[in-house]
């Protein structure tokens, strides 16, 4: 892989990988109950090598292995995935202020997932009910936005953004109706919490599907990174460089819907990661998608691990929705970026 990377990015990626490892350990060690780092390492080694743990430590072992580690790993996967979706969506609509929310994808996924929580739709799918419903919701949203935004001239960025935002409101309204129709208050509360995002329900079983979808999506996008570069210079230019912008944009639409669906299913609708992380990464490594798509997922993973750590410690033993933390960091970042004159990407 290293030879595949443009040179400048390799050291940065290395540093971020190190930061990711440290973040995972901190994320597991810290929390309402802090576990010494040495113990964490010992438990992890024991879990992996089927070692023996003293009976008195069974409680902390359970916290480390069954509760915190899957949660921290899921935070990393979701952070990486959301950042990648953010990069794709921004390139697709050539708009710096775009993220999965702008295209209505997150809202669509929310409708699907809320229906499962409230009405028990897709109950026969068991564990995968929410994943399936959220992905279906995102895909349905995609289809609606696509059909509404499409013209004879293809999918233009501005139409996509406008249609996506409008549809996003419509989906949010549907979700609200679903909550109103909730048979009991507990379900409504669950949906509300879930709409703001959170990893409280993370288990080992949620990890594989989300990881596979994110890795596969990332691998595909990394492969077509140069076509993404061409697309970001405008449709006419992309075409003269041999990239059909309409075909590529359709593919990106599908990839971002599937990714969004898979992520919303495990974490709820966590905002601002997909908006802010790609920006910051572009400021550091430039616009070339080969570099952006290498650094953004690592940065997003680290960011969300710490955001989730904040969410579960600030008002412990209560837990803040993850979306509250990302918004608290994201909104000031967003305003700063928007007003920053030095950073002219898409800015007019």
């Amino acid at each position: 892989m290293a030879a595949f990377l443009p040179r400048r990015v390799a050291p940065l990626a290395g540093v971020l990988l190190g930061a990711l490892a440290v973040s995972v350990l901190c994320g597991v060690a810290l929390g309402p109950v802090s576990v010494p780092l040495g113990d964490v390492l010992r438990y992890l080694r024991a879990a992996i090598t089927s070692g023996v743990i003293d009976n008195t430590e069974a409680g902390t072992y359970h916290i480390v292995w069954e509760i915190r580690l899957p949660r921290v790993l899921l935070a990393a996967v979701v952070g990486a995935g959301l950042s990648v979706v953010g990069v794709v969506v921004q390139t697709m609509v050539r708009n710096a202020l775009a993220d999965p929310f702008v295209l209505g994808l997150s809202s669509g996924a929310s409708v699907g997932a809320a229906s499962v929580v409230v009405f028990g739709a897709f109950a026969s799918l068991g564990l995968f009910a929410i994943s399936a419903a959220a992905s279906l919701g995102a895909l349905a949203a995609m289809a609606l936005v696509y059909l509404a935004a499409r013209t004879a001239a293809g999918l233009t960025p501005l139409r996509l953004v406008l249609t996506g935002s409008a549809m996003g409101y419509a989906f949010a309204a549907v979700t609200t109706v679903v909550i109103f129709l909730a048979p009991h208050g507990e379900a409504a509360r669950a949906v509300l919490f879930w709409l703001l995002g959170g990893l409280g329900a993370a288990t080992w079983t949620a990890l594989p599907l989300a990881s596979i979808v994110v890795l596969a999506g990332l691998a595909y996008l990394r492969l077509i990174a140069r076509s993404l570069n061409a697309l970001s210079t405008g449709d006419e230019t992309a075409r003269t460089l041999g990239v059909d912008p309409d075909v590529l944009r359709r593919r990106l639409f599908v990839v971002s819907s599937v990714l969004t669906g898979a992520l919303v299913a495990v974490s709820g609708a966590v905002g601002f990661v997909g908006l802010v992380v790609p920006h910051l990464v572009r400021m550091v490594v430039g616009a070339d998608h080969r570099r952006v798509l290498t650094v953004a997922p690592l940065a997003g993973a680290v960011f969300l691990i710490w955001a989730d750590l904040a969410a579960r410690t600030i008002v412990a033993p209560q837990e803040l929705p993850l979306g509250v933390i990302t918004a608290a960091v994201g909104v000031p970042c967003f305003v700063f970026l928007m007003r920053s004159r030095a950073y002219v990407f898409g800015g007019r």
Partner: peptide
């Protein structure tokens, strides 16, 4: 072309 949009700051 005339409208080569370059919004992203490539080198």
């Amino acid at each position: 072309t005339q409208d080569s949009e370059l919004d992203f700051d490539f080198t």
